[in-house]
Design a protein around this nucleic acid. Sequence first.
DNA 1: CCTATGACTGGTC
DNA 2: TGACCAGCCATAG
Length: 109
Amino acid sequence: MADYQRIYRIARRVPEGRVTTYGWIARAAGCGARQVGYAMAAVKPNDRVPWHRVVNREGRISPRGGGEGESRQRGRLEAEGVVFDASGRIDLDRFGWSPDPDLEELPLV
DNA sequence: CCTATGACTGGTC
DNA sequence: TGACCAGCCATAG
C-alpha cells in the first residue's frame, strides 16, 4: 500500500491539460510500469489523484475491466484542453509531461 | 512462502 | 502502426 502513495504523489505533479505515461511515473517512482497501472486501478476518491492524466505509451487510454471509466477519462482530458486524434490517441509531443527532468518533453501547446 | 494476475514497456518482425 | 514475446514488481489468494 505504501508504495502506491509514492506513485500517487508523482501522478499529482502532472499539470492540468497535460498527460504522462505509466512508464514515466514508474521510472520516477522507482518501480515497474505495471505497478503504476495497478496503483491507478486502486485509486480511491479520497486520494485526489488525477488518474485520468495517465495514459499508456501510445498516448491512448488503457482499456480496463469495465471500459466505463475510459470514456470518463477522455471526457475529463478534453475538458482540460487535451486533444485526441482520429485514432483516439493523444499527441505526447504536445501534451506529454514527464516527472523526470531528464525526459522533460518540450511543453507548450 | 509461492503462484497467478495485471489501467505496462521495450525490442523485434 | 500492429502483433508477438519476455521482463517487470506489488498485491491478492
